[in-house]
């Protein structure tokens, strides 16, 4: 009998607690940005196309399975369909590879949007870079047909095949959300 009483007490106690909490850490809203980013991922073997309304025109070597980057040549180019001309920044995530950096040193990256230079950066360290370049609305006369070209120099020449320049993770446009964007 005692066992049952103890057991009953144990199980009943499972439902009897008074719980209170202190005020939690106050959260702040991050800046939400619309992203039209082209992720460099393999599309074969189950991978989906990684970005809508964007595509690689050329200059990116095939992506190996399981990786989220690929080598580029000296002039990788991309196409994007944007919904409006204003407010966009061009974001690029890339890594400068030590195998290249050790042999040829710093590299210069120039970004062209629809053929017009939009910005540049000196890649003088061996690391991952998150770059952002504001894009003037005047450079996007037809947002639905936007072409981005990266010019990288110098690159590591290969005995066979194209030169190896940078490891590109993703490239694309982002902008802050506006009242015109669909809330629902």
């Amino acid at each position: 009998m005692r066992i049952f009483l103890i057991a009953a007490l144990f199980f009943t106690a499972a439902g009897c607690r008074e719980v209170s909490f202190p005020v939690p850490q106050q959260r702040s809203m991050p800046e939400f940005r619309l992203r039209q980013i082209l992720e460099i991922r393999p599309e074969s073997d189950g991978f989906a196309a990684t970005a809508q309304n964007s595509s690689i025109i050329g200059g990116v070597l095939p992506v190996a399975p399981g990786l989220d980057w690929s080598w580029t040549t000296a002039h990788p180019a991309f196409r994007f369909k944007l919904d409006q001309p204003s407010g966009w920044d061009l974001d690029i995530k890339l890594t400068t590879a030590d195998v290249v950096f050790d042999k040829i040193g710093p590299q210069q990256l120039t970004v062209l949007v629809n053929g017009t230079k939009t910005g540049s950066a000196t890649l003088d360290q061996c690391r991952t870079w998150l770059l952002r370049f504001p894009v003037a609305p005047a450079l996007l006369p037809d947002p639905a047909e936007t072409r981005v070209t990266l010019a990288i120099a110098p690159c590591l020449p290969q005995p066979e095949g194209p030169p190896l320049c940078i490891l590109l993770h993703n490239v694309g446009f982002t902008r802050p959300l506006t009242a015109q964007d669909p809330g629902r």
């Binding site: 719980v19 209170s20 909490f21 202190p22 005020v23 809203m29």
Partner: peptide
């Protein structure tokens, strides 16, 4: 102003009470 010394509770599901005081409209 919310103070860390406040104690928050509820008659039901008290474990999630902090979500009503975290300054986040979607929690």
């Amino acid at each position: 102003v919310r103070e860390p010394s406040w104690r928050l509770s509820a008659s039901a599901n008290p474990w999630e009470v902090p979500y009503a005081f975290d300054n986040n409209p979607v929690s």
